[in-house]
Amino acid sequence: MNPQVRIIKPKKGIVGIDFKELINFRELLYFFTWRDLKVRYKQTLIGGTWAILQPLLTMVIFTVFFGQIAKMPSDNIPYPIFSYSGLLLWLYFTNALTSAAGSIIGDERLISKVYFPRLLVPTSATLRCFVDYGLAALILGALMIYYKFLLTPAILLLPVILILTWLLATGLGYLLAALNVKYRDIRYAVPFFVQLLIYVTPVIYPLSLATGKYHWLLSLNPMTGLVEAHRAAILGHQAINFPLLGLAALTTIILFVVGITYFKSVERYFADII
């Protein structure tokens, strides 16, 4: 066997991603994801039920206040299934983003004592949240049966939408996780901004409600295109807005590149300042 030679020296500027190393450590990615899931299900009384209760109760409240009282339009489909299909992706995004943002400082001891590619930590956080998504999706399935919705070929686009949402949450997660190591303000700022963000994303209301410049402004939020496409891909109640989805994909990719680049350029200081 030809042993590999590693050179350790100060790095400067933008650091490339060592894909070979990431592949070597793929098992650790699995173990981090597995650890967090296992611990969560051991420590909480009703484990996975939380993943269902959170969107379900939110949907009930939205239905009462926005659907019944405020008579919010919902693209001609029942408000419960309208809001739930949006919430499902929205909650995945916010949970993934929040977990990723706190992930590096959450594994402080490991970061300062053991070497492994730091990217694995926020990545496992956003991957793990797909388990919650899967559980919460069961309720959407039930709602679809109840309201007699049939799957259309548009569902084939769902994996693409999920990958894009994952890229968005992970890219922003890298950025915030790295900033969090240096500026602990982030820890308090993230949940607050995430709460505000739902109002500029068509979860409670349909995008068709916003006209003129508001429509254009909302479209700049990549989650707008993703939530709308997610709803249309599953429910098939309207055609997928491809230009909007394309714009979201572009924004997502830009944000992902920015996030991962920033993370890679500061990760070498993590162990020193964490």
């Binding site: 590693r6 350790i8 070497y115 070498r268 200081y269 162990a271």
Partner: peptide, 14 residues
């Protein structure tokens, strides 16, 4: 081990 980076110098590890 690569946990932190040196400010100067190099190390070769085989």
């Amino acid at each position: 081990t690569g946990i932190t980076e040196p400010t100067a110098g190099t190390a070769l590890i085989k």
